[in-house]
Design a protein around this nucleic acid. Structure first.
Lengths: 244, 244
DNA sequence: GCAAAGATATGTTATACAGCACAAAATTAC
DNA sequence: GTAATTTTGTGCTGTATAACATATCTTTGC
């Protein structure tokens, strides 16, 4: 991970330009702020480039910053029993991470790492908390986001516990399509996960993720080429997901 | 379900007194408000008495009110595959329910019903939203609450998916103790759930909830008398929950 | 280019748990 | 007080899926 703004610190003009570009991408959040608050934020943030498979934050750490994913992809996961990880969500640009634990007065109970090279803005949590307490509209932004995530989390609990293995994998593939979309061909998922990550997302062993994906391919529901997955028959996939 | 304030509407003094008492119990929320906002709230709320096993809100309904549980106990659950319900959380006084779906712009994806006779305040969601947008401190109250619930939900996902049946039941018993506490004897859980509800909380069949609870009793971890459950050996229960 | 390490694939075995059947006990209804 | 219904308890069977073993294919490092 390297801090872009630090690297550019000797050419202040360029640094300011980078920060401005970041704030522009974070418009959904920034638009709630007045000029003074925008200034406070722009003084507080730093920009960082992560390589693939780098850790953004660790389980058990005390949260100091929240993260805004500007480009790339990040997985948020819990370390489960016997080294088996459970991916609880995947983030795409422009989404925010790492504030939940701080707002709930606790340490991180999840970890996060990049699935691809990613550009991330770090915002000190003390600054965000102050801004929320003086700006109700910003608070509302977080409330909406949290409510959506809580809904998704409750949904996931039932999906992962009650559906059979085929239903869980089908659900995950549809989830990935909904979150990251498809490439220009209209079929290939715009994310290349390892079978292990696919398994961790679907609450199954790696072997079973491989096996079940092969079965889906044999049934002509998907077309698999290494980590590229084309979703051919979305309707039947949806049906499999529904029926468990 | 009957509306207490309506029943008393001819004696305005008594009605006002009831509303004031309610606002007093809701102090954690009400303390964030100024006098004018308190007045808006007190004009908007109604008080309702629910019998045991009454539905507070249904799956699929459009949310119009949020609920504040003043006394009693409520379960929030999702209808799963094949009629098997999954209890996602249980509420105790004084906690708030039914606002998530509205803030996320959706319909209820859970249902809620009383586990005991319960007194509930209904607050129109439009009123709460307006108050949040003009009062950052109230927004912060909801952010904190949501962050705690989201953490609990993520935790539950891993517990329910990765732990074995004994671990899941142990976890549920500890969860109930932590949420509702124990009676004067220091051991008996202050909530009497049916074996079916205990199963729905622990993601297992009713038979297995009964069987596993009997095993716990045989192992002298708990003492069971009908729906009364005494937790005898909390330390070992905690161990079983940890190890899965 | 080759060795080493990691990811993917597939078959076999073991087991935890659901599903079902049925009995006993407790609660509710009349 | 008796019948009907619901809840609780126990045993048996089947099966979904984890766990393990092993082979092949792919990537990485030198």
């Amino acid at each position: 991970m390297c801090c872009i703004t630090y690297l550019c610190s000797k050419k202040m003009g360029k640094k300011d330009k980078i920060i401005t570009e970041c704030l522009c991408k974070m418009n959904e959040l920034v638009n709630t702020l007045n000029e003074k608050q925008k200034d406070v934020l722009s003084q507080a943030i730093t920009v960082h480039q992560y390589k693939k498979n780098e850790t953004v934050y660790h389980y058990g750490e005390t949260p100091k910053h929240m993260f805004c994913l500007l480009s790339g992809k990040i997985k948020v996961y819990k370390e489960g029993i016997g080294g088996r990880n459970q991916i609880v969500r995947v983030a795409k640009p422009v989404e925010y991470l790492g504030y939940r634990a701080y707002f709930a007065n606790g340490k991180f109970i999840t970890a996060a790492s990049t699935l691809e090279p990613s550009c991330v803005v770090k915002i000190p949590l003390t600054v965000i908390k102050e801004l929320i307490l003086e700006n109700a509209e910003l608070g509302w932004f977080f409330i909406k986001t949290l409510c959506q995530e809580l809904g998704r989390s409750d949904q996931r609990t039932v999906n992962l516990t009650q559906k059979h293995i085929r239903g869980r994998l089908a659900e995950s593939l549809l989830y990935l399509k909904e979150r990251y979309g498809v490439e220009a061909d209209g079929y290939t998922l715009s994310i290349y996960l390892s079978r292990e990550d696919l398994a961790n997302l679907s609450n199954m062993t790696t072997s079973n993720a491989i096996r079940t994906l092969s079965l889906f391919a044999a049934d002509k529901l998907v077309l698999v080429d290494g980590r590229k997955i084309k979703i051919i028959d979305e309707e039947r996939l949806r049906q499999i997901s529904r029926l468990g």
